[in-house]
Design a protein around this nucleic acid. Structure first.
Length: 255
DNA sequence: ATGGTAGAGGATCTA
């Protein structure tokens, strides 16, 4: 069994003790992190290796940044995807435990009128083209991370209020659907799930206490891997901790 | 009254 997880930590510097605690409790084989917000020279490699995990990372100053923590060594590591043409550190692609793993931090988009929203849609289109190519070569592909898109009305706390807003606009949801149509499954929806399960809650307005959240962090699997997927769950526990990330981890297991 | 909170970095920008 291979256990793989994703977690937007919103600063690895601040969240490192929580990440180490969570690794000890949950023992994943692979953990994909987003928003590390660290230069590579400041990555806490020693502390993570001391906890029994190897690391690969692609960071930058202040914003973005992704990392892959794994029990086994990751190989064939790619930090710059062909055709993405992006200076921001948002992707990390590697092979680990017989999986081809693509860790993504999709642009937030800010709001639907913003230039950053167009950047998000263009970025997703380029990523989708790349994934379409990669699925030809890799039948055991996992794409996971913070997609900054809630795919369906049941993935947001108030679909009427949020309709047309960033993270839940029709063009974003269509882009997500197009990505799945390359041959990926949203592993969370392979299983019967309780209602009102989310992965992100705004820090403001007591959103977590009121469960005003969105499901925007996902683990997508190729057809071969979908058949081998036995669970996908959201761990809300770290969101309850003192000084938490605004995102909860998502965990999938593969036979 | 365009809020409210968090992180980075040292004034705003991003989410």
């Amino acid at each position: 069994m291979t256990k793989i997880a994703t977690w937007n930590v919103n600063s690895l510097r601040v969240r490192l003790p929580q990440v180490l605690d969570w690794l000890g409790t949950n023992q994943p084989d692979i953990l994909a992190l987003q928003e590390t917000k660290l230069l590579d020279e400041n990555f806490p490699q020693g502390e993570i290796e001391a906890a029994g995990y190897q690391v690969a990372y692609a960071g930058q100053k202040a914003y973005n940044g992704v990392a892959l923590l794994s029990r086994s060594a990751a190989t064939d590591i790619i930090r710059d995807i062909d055709g993405l043409d992006d200076d921001q550190r948002r992707v990390l692609f590697a092979t680990c435990d017989r999986l081809r793993v693509l860790n993504v931090y999709v642009p937030n988009g800010e709001n639907v009128e913003s230039d950053k929203y167009q950047y998000k849609l263009t970025w997703l289109k380029k990523l989708t083209g790349y994934i379409r190519q990669q699925l030809v070569a890799h039948d055991r592909l996992v794409v996971l991370g913070d997609f900054n898109i809630a795919p369906e009305p049941r993935d947001v706390y108030d679909p009427e209020l949020l309709e047309g807003q960033v993270l839940f606009s029709v063009p974003e949801r269509t882009a997500f659907r197009t990505l799945l149509d390359t041959g990926l499954s949203d592993t969370f929806r392979l299983f019967n799930q309780e209602d009102k399960q989310y992965t992100w809650w705004d820090y403001r307005m007591m959103a977590f206490r009121r469960n005003r959240g969105l499901r925007i962090d996902h683990i997508l699997a190729s057809e071969t891997l979908s058949k081998a997927c036995v669970s996908c769950t959201i761990d809300k526990e770290p969101r309850r901790w003192e000084r938490p990330s605004d995102h909860a981890p998502v965990i999938a297991e593969f036979r």
